[in-house]
């Protein structure tokens, strides 16, 4: 990002922001999973996953949305979570939210 346009010509928004509960839970998951006692993910794997996001989604996603995307991808890639069970779980939660699964 060093010196890269258009960011290098933009003003810095210095507003302070609180973290949401979602932000905190995602941060907690990353810390727990990367802790040496579990060693289930590393920061370089996380960045790799985030940087591989489709450009439009990368631009749109919040900071911690990118993080949870990476956590999910890495957990599935390492078979800690099965891809199918994640899909089923998401469908259940979507139904719970009152959306069409």
């Amino acid at each position: 990002m060093g010196g890269i346009e258009p960011f290098a010509s933009q003003p810095i928004d210095r507003a302070e922001h609180e973290l949401s509960e979602f932000d905190k839970r995602v941060d907690a998951l990353v810390n727990l999973l990367s802790h040496p006692s579990r060693a289930l993910m590393r920061v370089d794997e996380m960045r790799n996953s985030i940087e591989a996001m489709p450009p439009e989604e990368y631009d749109r996603a919040l900071y911690y949305e990118k993080w949870i995307h990476a956590v999910a991808e890495i957990m599935v890639a390492k078979d800690v979570i099965g891809e199918e069970e994640l899909v089923l779980k998401l469908a259940d939660l979507k139904e719970e939210d009152g959306e069409e699964a």
Binding site: D13, A15, H17, E18, S20, F22, R25, V26, L29, L33, R60, A61, L62, Y63, Y64, E65, I68, H69, V71, A72, M75, V80, I81, E85, L86, K89, L90, L93, K94, D97, E99
Partner: peptide, 22 residues
Amino acid sequence: PVGATEPRPEYARLERAVRELL
């Protein structure tokens, strides 16, 4: 995006799904 507070529903569900499965 850095400063916005609440995630979109699909990401909120992704967090909950991953956390509950783990």
